[in-house]
Design a binder for these strands. Sequence first.
DNA 1: AACTCATGAAACCGTTCGGTTGCACTTGAC
DNA 2: GTCAAGTGCAACCGAACGGTTTCATGAGTT
Lengths: 102, 102
Amino acid sequence: MQPLGCILLFEVMKRDIFQAIADPTRRAIIALIALQAMTPNAIAEHFDTSRQAVSKHLRILAECELVKQEYKGREIYYSAGDRKMKEIDEWLDRKFGADTSN
Amino acid sequence: MQPLGCILLFEVMKRDIFQAIADPTRRAIIALIALQAMTPNAIAEHFDTSRQAVSKHLRILAECELVKQEYKGREIYYSAGDRKMKEIDEWLDRKFGADTSN
DNA sequence: AACTCATGAAACCGTTCGGTTGCACTTGAC
DNA sequence: GTCAAGTGCAACCGAACGGTTTCATGAGTT
C-alpha cells in the first residue's frame, strides 16, 4: 500500500481545514463575517444556537486560520481570511484542474 | 419515520459535498482514482482499511456525484468526476474571490 | 473596590461517523 | 448446476462531533 504523501500534507495541521468547512454552521459564519467583521455575540444572534456554541466554531475556524481576530477593548472582532481558502482551491485544481471530462 | 417523510426522501438523502471531502481517506481515494479508474478491491489495497470500509466511502462519494461508476461484468470501475467539485470552487469564489487581503 | 459585560474553557450528553464483521446478491468460470 | 470472485448492505462498536450548562477570566464602568 502506498502512502500518498502529498495528500497527507493536510494532516499535519492540528485541525483539518476540510473538516472545518464541512459544518454548515461554520460555513454560514464564514459567509456572515466575510461581509463585515463581527463579535461572537453579534454572530450568535444570527443563529439558533447559544453563544458558546458559536465560540467553539470560531475557535475551530481560528485554528485553521480561516478567520482573523482583532481585539478592541473587551470585544473581539472576527473577520474572514482567504489565505487558507487558497489551499483548498489548490487541492481542487491539482485533482481536477486538468480533467474536463464528465 | 414520519408519514410524510418519504416525500422528502430525495432532499433528505442529499449528502453535503463539503462533508464528503472532509474525510482524509475519501480525499485520498479521489486522488487515487483521479489518476486511473479502479475497482473497489484495487482501491482498498492502497489503504489500511477493509474493502467494505472503502465501499462505504465510495457510496458517499457517489451520492455526491464526486465519482463515476462504470460497470464491466462483475467489476465496477470508479473514476473521479469534477462536476460537483466546481460547486466547492464556486462557494470559495463567492466568499473570497474578491477579497485579496490577509 | 464592586459590578457588569464580553468572552473563552471545561464537563457532560445525545448523535453522528468511520471502522469491522458477517451476510446476501450477482457475475463469470468450471 | 456448482463454485469462487467482486461487490454492496445491515448490525454493531468505539471515537469524535456539536450542543448545552456552568464556571473562570479580563476589560470597562460606577
